[in-house]
Design a protein around this nucleic acid. Sequence first.
RNA 1: GCCGGGAUGGCGAAACGGGUAGACGCGAGGGACUUAAAAUCCCUUUCCCGCAAGGGAGUCCGGGUUCGAGUCCCGGUCCUGGCACCA
Length: 836
Amino acid sequence: MTETIHPNPAEDSVGYDPTAIERKWQERWETRGTNHTDLAAGVRPFYALMMFPYPSAEGLHVGNLFAFTGNDIYGRFQRLQGHTVFEPLGYDAFGIHSENFALKVGTHPADLIPRNIDNFRRQLKRAGLMIDWRHELSTTDPDYYKWTQWLFLQLYKRGLAYKKGAAVNWCPNDKTVLANEQVIAGECERCGAKVEQRFLEQWFFRITDYAGRLLDNLDSLDWSDSTKQAQRNWIGRSDGAELSFRVQDLEELTGTATIASGESGEYTAEPIDVRVFTTRPDTIFGATYLVLAPEHPLVGALTTDEQRGAVLAYQQRAAKQDLVSRKVSKEKTGVFTGTFAVNPATQSPIPVWIADYVLMEYGTGAIMAVPGHDERDFEFAKVFDLPIARVVAPGGATVPHGPMDAAYTESENVHLVNSGEFTGLSVAEAKKAIVVWLALNGHAKAVVNYRLHDWCISRQRYWGPPIPIIYCDHCGTVPVPEQDLPVELPYVEDFKPDDSGVSPLARVESWYRVACPTCGGQARRETDVSDTFLDSAWYFLRYPSTGFSDTPFDETITKKWLPVNSYIGGNEHAVLHLLYSRFTTMVLHDAGLIDFEEPFTKFRAHGMIIREGAKMSKSRGNVVNPDEYIERWGADTFRTYLMFLGPYEEGGDFRDQSIAGVRRFLDRLWYSVVGATTDGAPDAGVIRKLHQTIKKVSSDLPVLSYNTAVAAMMEYMNTVRRGERMAHRAEVEPLVQLVAVFAPHLAEELWERLGHVESVFDAGWPVFDASLAAEEMQTIAVQVGGKTRGTVQVPTGAGQEAALEAAMADPSISKFVVATPKKVVFVPGRLLNLVI
RNA sequence: GCCGGGAUGGCGAAACGGGUAGACGCGAGGGACUUAAAAUCCCUUUCCCGCAAGGGAGUCCGGGUUCGAGUCCCGGUCCUGGCACCA
């Protein structure tokens, strides 16, 4: 921190001393239980949830506090409106992030995490949040992850958890699985070794079964639009069709022997159908070749003997590449299988290729290539000199034939050409008509595809909840019986991932060797742990029920407190965390365990804070450490400043110099209240401003417009103190209540000094009185020909006549009225426009 | 490439469903108090011309709609977040 800033003025005892006040009230809240929520008896329950933090070793980030403070203000406001508010907090402490850090510093995560959590708790308590600490939780606590494992079993029971082989990124040097983010340009981010693909058996959740519901429900959720849009894009609904292309001995068709033979080389008499997915069935007359993903199961059967060598080589090369660079590299590569298929629309033979630009995970893993109207297919056709046909042209154009120099992808105001009986139709018409036509021969059906994939929850790591599955030689896959939960994560000294491709737990024989729960025979535990996102996909259900050890969430309490009324968090979780939570909730709903299917009634994403115009980062060394600022300025000033520096949902620029302004405001508030008089009556003009301020703040808080709420209070403070006047108690007492949501300690102290015994947070919200807020006179802007020429004062509610008269009476305005106005526009209370 | 968000004084930012652009705060300049400094308080502060009165210009750029556009429409530039060979 720089040393040029406002020093602490509060050395003398009558001044505002945040350090003393904040300590006093934090203690008192604790002893009085001010922030304890009576979950059973509380009326008008309001669940104000914030995304729980990952307790990093660096301590609380200012971004965390920005998020939490915004939620805290919202929660405190609801409380002052008469709700029983529940504001819990916990720690998302499992995961690769903690594990990697632990590896780096050479400390066991089980030792490291509790220390980090202690530090976080200490920091959070200083920030003056209205948290009910009795409901704190950590995902690493066996009492918590017992139920995470239980959740897995519920999905397993419902057939929503299954195991399959899937590709992962593998670093041959570090001997570990890497997340996609850890692969930089095909290399391991830590050691730089070339990353490979490995196939591992992993557990998946069938979230794709819920794709339609996850998408459709979005319409009825009160969430930030940007978040909903991100989810829509992620789910990625595509309406299209599945078409089939027949592959057979084409001797009869072409006279050329292009015999498809099986893997063992035998003659394949049976015709094979290759199914493709397309969103543009209208372009089928332009499909000049097919492409399968290299891993497509039909590739072996479709490859001719002459091409087999090349195909196998290509498949091997594709398998070697890491997952990231395979998708990123744009140069088209591929190999001809030697086989032809029949285009069902044109009846022409078209070649079948394999190429890695077709992904096995999406659609059917095969496409019909329409190079005339798809950029990727066009590029591929150019590289391998495949035919390009035009079947779509701009509206009104006559059949333009001949070579194309780019794919023509326009689909509005265009029509089909070279498409038999469909020529002339619009794209939309042709899509329907062609699917209907091809469906007659079983060549097509309308299909909806989602780009959402099933959720892979296996992690070949140590720091997570073990997946509660046991493999028995006799009984096969056996879920751990619920009464045997939790499957505790053993304390393993050497938790480093190794060459085996499985979790470090696979080295702990004493742990993984168990008796089969069904037959009692020799069996072995699943040694992978589950994804951190599973921990956080249900934590909001646990908070109200942390006191229950026999159930993950108590039925009565859950009914009363969920779904969450308000959820605030960062948009970096717009997709994964929020989507997984929604999915989990839907599954529990379908299992009859809860009576709602959407967990968060309202969600708002907060913005990001930057520092002096630049992104905060450790390497830049410009990270704000909340401790230092709270020490210097007080938590109340820090909180209020965070909320003042920009619009909450957009974030803002943290500038050290600007904090002083907020502190000055709180200083002025302090002196005004402490020195307030009760003599005589309050000033009517000030009271008018007070009620205007109550109205403004009351309407700003529910929409998270915290920066303007603070500005309004500052403005009011200026009105109260104008010309060094002394405040009257009635002018400032309600202001203490307003400011309480931002500066809770200061407000409590002033409230007490005003003679109140109860907490300001049990005192309710000031009542807005419209009659006291009303102005007698209004300022009307006067324009002549749309140009503002001055203002006039008229009595409130005055009509056009009065305004016009006042305007003409002012020579500095009337001099512009050089002719009789053609038209007069009057907006009551705002403006008069004389059109000459 | 696709989908979001954005561009307003020296700076962070305000501006209800078009209706006085710049609230509030920072910084800067001037003044009061003080032996002095800090703190505090008061005044000024979008830019240009002008001693002033006053006038002109102005919300990224170019058009448009309107009595009136930061706000609505069309076209573009730049910044920023996310997704990305998804057929």
